[in-house]
Design a binder for these strands. Structure first.
Lengths: 209, 209, 209, 209
DNA sequence: AATGAATGAGCGTTCATTCAT
DNA sequence: CATGAATGAACGCTCATTCAT
């Protein structure tokens, strides 16, 4: 992998990501970002060309890191039983979304500014689809799964449900025991993961015993 | 229902909703809205007091209409077998989200501006939860459902999956036959509905035959 | 005198005068005036043609009334000794300025909008100059006054000093016993009147004995 | 004196002062000021934070300079006969008001926007009162003045008369020989100064010979 | 390589006024 | 005769960006 960004640039991107996820692209001014990053207002144009281009770089940067992360993960589950692999995939996706909800929070919201970059995310999603497909087929072949649902639908359910929980805390926190800022996300993650495991294995017709 | 808004106001709100859903609240200027609505730039302040207040009214307006719509729907399925009711609920929610995806697109995105109004949406979501709970319990009692998954998790799956499909057209259209602007949404709706029916009934342990 | 204005118009002018004196011409919106007068926003344009024309009418209206008032006053002092006449004139001018300080407050401030109307005020001031001139000459002739200061300078001193006191309450109230809103103006009026009597009679070389 | 303002800021303040004195605070738009100062419309917010804050700075700036100027002046008349000192004070105040009539023109008009800053002007006026008090007392002690009029009343007469002349040119120019724009102020200044000298010395009971 | 001063465009809002009724 | 809905212009201000250094 080429080292595309300097440390300073990464510093700016990190802060920009956080602010944009919180307040939206238009709701975040370059002054906000620069002031929080303790740099000159001109730096964003200087480093990235423009605010909009910065958005592209930010996007690329996050996809890049996420992709790296995924291929590391994929290695760790290479040799396992399909049901274990499926469980790990679900756990992994949910955990990633919770961890980088800043990013995933704005990916679909603010992508109007980086229309052409959506493909990269699509490519990435298809890595998941491909992996899910492998696991499903393997499970069916080995008899542990009964049905062959479409992998893109499985992925849709996993990501959609998780993002919904992250973005609608006001709703979901009514159903988790604790409501404190710190513990909500942990408990919500657990609850949605359990839900998804149940759902997905049900769809797969997993014969538990 | 009290006639809260005049026709002209509704006209403005409709256009505002569309634009805000597409480009975000800050990304949509009052000039954008007024120019598309063929009215004077002063009209938004004139009718609603301010852009921000317009946002509140827009939100109230949509929640109001959605709530009305839902209670009409709820009546139509009052007397039915649980499995039919469940099927209708899923179909209804998916259809509503597709129909008003403009609104649902910005509800969670732009609600930072109308923080106190989130409760209204939460109240509304709980109508669904309550209804789902009824249906699940009735189905279990009558023996048609085997398991008793949490209704909030069912709702999460339904709304989350559907919104994901709506918002990630670039991804999902790879898996539907047609890609034209007009047909995509129809086919995507059908596909996600089928997926959800399968998932939900699987989780419920529905004994089909 | 022709009845130029209807009661409604006078009602509007009274309120406009008060607000404009307090907050300035540009600082007072037609909405402010109309809302305080409980009339429609369109009425000022309807009755007077425009805000600026209303200003002219307001000006004319006040000069008219002041002029009437002055000729009544002039009658009451027609037959008196010069020193009594002078005393009464000073008392009258000071009292009028205090009473109509709303008006006099904006006459010089806001007259940029009614440039051509200044002449009317100038005409009016010259009534005073003429009267003062008469009194001075009579007093000198009768030997009660020693010097013949210019009447326009006497007037300048009287009006200038009085307006200064009215407009610089923060300064002058340091030197009057009471500071309450109600009593300040009464006491300030008395103090400035005493000062002016002393000054003017000193300039006239009035032999009190 | 601390260098509080840059040259550019002072340039803006000078133009703002002139325009505001002429057309009032609300009557002067930031666009007016910037266009006359040949700068961008954003500069006033950029340099001063807002139009209103600019007004405060403008006020501080002028009071500061006036105060400095006065203390220089006070030094030059320290050692003199009371009648000479009084003459110089009158001459000084009149000259200052004519020179900075722009400023004095709006101080009392537009101070509603800077209510809390009035105190600074009041403090300043009291420097005059104190000085006048000294001179009067010294003159009475040395026998050159007969009466002891209140110094605040002397000041009121001086400032009030002068400002009246400045603000009512239409009236006063009827009594000065020349009416041209350039010469009016010079001649009016002379006339009002002579008037005030006569008045004040008369009140003091000055034994000329 | 990096800055801070300065810019022009555009923001949401308020203004005095007009117009259809 | 009077209204209230509606308008276009202008308001003060903030924006992302540029430019001279």
């Amino acid at each position: 992998m080429k080292k595309k960004f300097t440390e300073k640039q990464i510093h700016i991107l990190d802060i920009a990501e956080e602010l944009i996820a919180k307040k939206g692209y238009e709701g975040t001014s370059v002054r906000d970002i620069c002031s929080k990053a303790n740099i000159n207002v001109a730096m964003i144009s200087y480093y990235f060309g423009s605010k909009e281009k910065m958005m592209s770089y930010l996007y690329q940067y996050r996809v890049l890191k996420t992709r790296e992360n995924f291929s590391e993960f994929a290695d760790t589950i290479k040799e396992g039983k399909p049901e274990m692999q499926m469980k790990e995939i679900i756990k992994y996706i949910v955990a990633q979304l919770f961890k980088y909800n800043y990013f995933h929070g704005f990916v679909t919201q603010e992508l109007r500014h980086t229309e052409n970059l959506k493909d990269e995310l699509m490519d990435f999603y298809q890595l998941f689809v491909k992996k899910l497909d492998e696991v499903i087929k393997k499970g069916v072949t080995s008899g542990v799964f009964t049905f062959t649902p479409k992998p893109e639908d499985i992925l849709t359910t996993i990501i959609g449900s998780t993002l919904f929980v992250i973005r609608n805390r006001n709703f979901y926190e009514l159903y988790v025991p604790s409501k404190s800022e710190e513990t909500y996300f942990k408990e919500a993650e657990k609850k949605v993961r359990m839900n998804l495991l149940m759902s997905v294995f049900a769809i797969l017709g997993y014969a538990a015993d």
